[in-house]
Write a protein that binds this DNA or RNA. Structure first.
Length: 293
DNA sequence: AAAGCGGCCTCCGTTTAAAG
DNA sequence: CTTTAAACGGAGGCCGCTTT
């Protein structure tokens, strides 16, 4: 989508760390992930920067949804972006130092996106997939690129960062408060970070600068959904800082039928619910035709 | 072909959080 | 505190598949 954003730019600067393997251009700029990158454009022009992504809060569960009533993954996944300035790249004096103050980083243009991967139930014989397809492991279960199921992911899959006090100093955090999954099962997320206003030396595509894989979570059918826990401290902290997300003080789990809460009188017509379902032949395209993604 | 069964989506009432 | 809006859990009933 952002491919060739800076196409045509030619630089005459000396060879830098980002000049290797230009041959395969099919990879959407993934070949620089995790590497020190010399930038010629953007806020870090002239510097070599290595970006690192770390999941600091993982989703635990979600409720599958179809077309309406979206239910976000909970707790909201949060990843932290760390940036390291690298000097004397490739020499024996190579030295890395973290950006001293993240408040000084130009936030505009920084984005993090997510991909969804199913976690297989039982480990298929590990021999099967020694192809370079495997991108990650979840307790010895190989996760293959071709199993990517991002199309089942709905909501805000691209988010801008928030600069928030975290562990005593400002940090760049990406909060995914509006993610839902359309199929049930176990999954992991892959986070990828890029900056639309930066361009590496001698590089045509927009570069993915960092990625990381998150912890596994489970998406339940409506019926077996166990309910949501109270918000984590991190979630509440983010809300306090104005990040838009759902918070709940207590665990949410409605009392079972017949269960009473001291002065609770059971509903008179429990069991015989009248519904005014729009009786039509439904064909379920009739109403709710709006779709996203 | 008809009846039975089960999975699943949508819709609803209640509860909680936010706003006034 | 009271009111409004959103979040949330529950389950009815639709739909497609299986069995008789």
């Amino acid at each position: 989508m952002f491919t060739h954003f800076y196409a045509g730019y030619e630089s005459s600067q000396p060879a830098g760390p980002a000049t290797f393997s230009q041959n395969d251009s099919q990879a959407h700029g993934t070949d620089l992930i995790g590497r020190p990158i010399l930038f010629v454009h953007g806020q870090f022009a002239g510097s070599t920067i290595r970006a690192e992504l770390r999941e600091i809060q993982q989703a635990e569960l979600g409720r599958k949804y179809a077309r309406v009533d979206r239910r976000p993954l909970d707790p909201p996944p949060v990843v932290q972006l760390r940036l390291f300035k690298v000097r004397d790249v490739g020499t024996e004096h190579e030295l890395e130092s973290e950006i001293p103050n993240y408040e000084d980083v130009q936030i505009l243009g920084l984005l993090c996106t997510v991909d969804l991967f199913p976690v297989p139930f039982v480990s298929k014989s590990p021999s099967k997939s020694e192809a370079s397809e495997t991108v990650h492991y979840v307790n010895n279960h190989p996760i293959e690129e071709s199993s990517k199921a991002t199309s089942a992911l709905v909501g805000a899959t691209f988010v801008q960062p928030s600069v928030i006090d975290y562990e005593g100093k400002k940090a760049i955090l990406f909060v995914f408060a509006d993610l839902a999954v359309k199929i049930e099962g176990s999954f992991i997320l892959r986070y990828r970070f890029f900056d639309i206003f930066s361009r590496p030396y001698n590089y045509q595509d927009l570069a993915i600068q960092a990625e990381c894989y998150g912890g596994a979570f489970h998406v339940y059918s409506t019926k077996e959904f166990p309910g949501l826990q109270a918000s984590t401290e991190l979630t509440k902290h983010l809300a306090r800082w104005g990040v838009r997300l759902n918070t709940r003080e207590t665990e949410r789990r409605r009392r079972k039928k017949g269960e009473t809460r001291e002065h609770f009188s059971p509903s008179p017509n429990s069991g015989t619910r009248k519904r005014k379902r729009s009786s039509g032949p439904s064909t379920d395209g009739g109403f709710q035709s709006d779709e996203e993604e």
